[in-house]
Amino acid sequence: MNQNRTIYWRSFRMAAWLGWQIESNWTDPFLFAVYSFVKPLSGAAILVVMYSVITNGAFGSPVFPYIYLGNAFYQYVGAVMTGVSWAVIDDREHYKTLKYMYVAPISIPIYLLGRGVSRFITGSMSVIITILAGMWFLHVDIDVTAVHWPLFFLSLFIGVVMLAMMGLLLAGVTLLMARHVGFMGEAVAGALYLFSGAIFPLDVLPAWLRPIGYAMPLTYWLELLRRALIGSVADAFPTLSGYSSGQLLAILTALTLLFSAAGILVFRWCDYHAREQGMIDATTNY
């Protein structure tokens, strides 16, 4: 048991260190800092311009902070979920080290989760920059003294764990696919964007599509984060207004556990079949 804990810890710690080295060393520190600012602000700017054109600049409407915050926190989905699964492609195709990681006495799922830490850190920087820009320049009124911080941090933590475990599930599927697998993380994140209430409430979707959104933990997670930061935004849309924050937290926790179990089981299954099919070190020579 102790030996397992040691193996898990060193797998996670070193993977996080490696991920950070890769994430932060691809260019010089100044360019990295500029990129860290420009990327999230550009993404938010596109959304703000579109919103402004469609609503004739109705920034006072509760719709705006709903969309803005949903979009800001959705950056975690791309960062954490695809960060974990992308490590498989990166190590297998680019660095050609995945087989050496597999031969080493480490836990591969924990290693992959560790690789997602750096993306969580850079993702957090993007989220903070986007929210601060919204508060300072776009009248996203977040009263720091009225924020429900315990609810915010608890929801954030559960949500990041949920995203990491969904990333593990994707990583498993990635192990079994050799070609064009790089697009999968983006495709899944893009598809979930529609069904998570990130930029519009689920009521906007056709009735037959809504159950997908209700089954996604992301929906409850984004709702909780909005409620914790600006309670009134959640009240502006009826979709989940019938649920208390405690109920939403319970649903999020239950769905996170469910998706975590699915992530572990799917990864194990895929890992077994990747060995069967000789996919651990398969490269496409792109």
């Binding site: 490696l18 890769i22 660095y95 080290t97 087989k99 050496y100």
Partner: peptide, 16 residues
């Protein structure tokens, strides 16, 4: 108990 090296390849993290 084991380790492995494959020849003829340039594996490794180039940024490190």
């Amino acid at each position: 108990l084991i380790n492995m090296v494959s020849g003829g390849e340039t594996s490794g993290y180039g940024l490190l």
